[in-house]
Amino acid sequence: MELWVDDSFFNGRSLDVFITKLRRHLKDDPQIQIIDIRGDWI
């Protein structure tokens, strides 16, 4: 039984939450920089 036909929204939001937590955890290290790339870059 499927609850959602297209779960890409939920997977995308999960990644956003993960990156937010990762940034919060690594914010004090000046050598680490996470850069957002938006759009069709693939």
Rank of each mutant, 00 (worst) to 15 (best):
K27F: 08
R38S: 04
D29T: 11
K27P: 00
D7A: 08
K21W: 06
K21Y: 10
V5A: 11
D16A: 14
E2D: 10
W41L: 04
W41Q: 02
I42H: 15
V5G: 05
R13G: 02
E2N: 05
L15P: 01
Q33T: 14
L15V: 15
N11W: 03
Q31S: 10
R13Q: 02
R24A: 15
V17P: 00
P30I: 08
N11G: 02
E2T: 04
D28P: 00
L22I: 12
W4S: 10
G12V: 00
N11Q: 09
W41K: 02
K21E: 15
I34W: 03
L3C: 07
G39N: 01
W41D: 00
H25A: 07
F9D: 09
K21V: 07
K27Y: 08
E2S: 08
N11T: 07
E2C: 02
I35L: 11
F9C: 05
D16R: 12
R23I: 09
D28F: 01
F10V: 03
I19V: 15
D28E: 12
V17K: 05
G39C: 00
F9S: 09
D28I: 01
M1T: 04
W4M: 07
R23C: 13
K21Q: 14
D40N: 13
D6L: 01
D16V: 11
K27V: 14
I19M: 15
D7W: 03
D6K: 00
F9G: 05
I35Q: 13
L15S: 11
M1F: 03
V5F: 02
G39H: 04
H25S: 08
I42S: 11
L22C: 12
D28A: 02
N11I: 09
F18N: 09
